[in-house]
């Protein structure tokens, strides 16, 4: 039940493999939902780098999703670019624009902490929304931009399953890269900053720069998710950058378990399930969504990923109060 690091890696591997093998047998609608969840999982994991590992609760993560998505849509409709092999160029550009936006925003945001950080990222996110909503000549305003078709280069991404595999590939790559990142010395110093910023500063770390780099990296992954998001629905509208998207991303991380990476992915799956599936089944789905928010906060401080640890602690307590926890 409670796995070692290696065991956990294996579990993830098996699940990804299962996702890959089972896809052709699932119904087209399930594929669509899972694709959506995987894209949002990339966004949630990027946010987890900030929230879970660095301790920066960003309320504007949708901005990078939006930048990537709008870039994709604008290139595709105006310059007919990114609909063939050049799709891969757009992927790179999407990551870059996300990172660049974060690099700019970071200059404003990083020096703040706690509540101020929440507020300033909210403000920055709203700036992006404002532009998306009103800068008609560029973004199509409230109409949004329709992308004529998904890219094709040898393979037809128009096919739901093919696109799913592409997204799964990016999801696995993102997960792997972020995992390497958090295991690196840089990642460990981020955690150090989260725990004791002052101490790290005394030890000679440039904590501002560390946070800034983490912020930019998170932006890059957000941009990547944006490119994939744009082609999922074929429409990009200000709806992707509204406050609710940012808040949802936060919920995904908190629900899954901050500081666990895959927790964000689980959270994304749950939120997609609620928003896009449950909403078509029952009219009162928002009670469930709101309820999930409230209950998570009240009863699951460690998120879903924290449940095993909780159970273990509970069992140990049952086994005998004298026993010390091995941590």
């Amino acid at each position: 039940m409670f796995l070692t690091d290696r065991g956990k890696l294996w579990t993830v591997f098996v699940i990804v493999l299962a996702l890959a093998i089972l896809a052709p047998f699932a119904s087209a609608y399930v594929i669509l939902l899972v694709t959506q969840a995987l894209i949002l999982a990339i966004l949630a994991m990027s946010l987890d780098i900030l929230l879970g590992f660095t301790g920066l609760p960003s309320l504007g993560q949708a901005a990078y999703l939006g930048m990537g998505a709008y870039l994709t849509a604008i290139l595709a409709t105006r310059y007919d670019f990114g609909l063939g092999w050049s799709f891969w160029v757009v992927i790179v550009l999407g990551i870059l624009i996300g990172a660049a936006t974060a690099a700019l925003f970071g200059l404003f945001a990083i020096r703040a902490a706690g509540v101020s950080f929440l507020m300033i990222t909210l403000a920055l996110g709203m700036c992006v929304w404002g532009l998306a909503y009103r800068w008609n000549s560029m973004t199509g305003g409230d109409n949004g931009i329709n992308i004529p078709a998904r890219p094709k280069f040898g393979i037809q991404l128009a096919d739901g399953v093919t696109y799913y595999y592409l997204v799964l590939f990016f999801f696995v790559m993102s997960l792997a890269m972020l995992y390497v990142l958090i295991k690196s010395p840089f990642g460990r110093s981020l955690v150090g900053i989260r725990e004791r910023e002052l101490r790290m500063r005394i030890l000679g770390y440039n904590t501002w720069l560390h946070k800034y780099i983490a912020f930019v990296i998170a932006g890059g992954f957000g941009g990547l998710a944006g490119v994939l998001w744009a082609h999922l629905n074929g429409i990009v509208s200000p709806q992707v950058v509204v406050l609710a998207t940012s808040v949802d991303a936060l919920l995904m991380v908190v629900l899954g378990g901050p500081g666990t990476l895959v927790g964000g992915a689980i959270g994304a799956a749950v939120v997609v399930f609620l928003r896009d599936y449950l909403s078509t089944v029952v009219p009162w789905w928002q009670y469930v969504l709101g309820g999930v928010y409230v209950l998570t906060i009240l009863y699951l401080p460690g998120g879903l990923m924290g449940i095993p640890a909780r159970i273990r602690r509970w069992r140990e307590e049952q086994a005998g109060p004298g026993q010390e926890k091995k941590r």
Partner: peptide, 18 residues
Amino acid sequence: DPLRQVLLTVGFAFLFQQ
């Protein structure tokens, strides 16, 4: 805990909406 307060109030916002 600012983050948890934010999410809790958002949750209530959704509940009120519904």
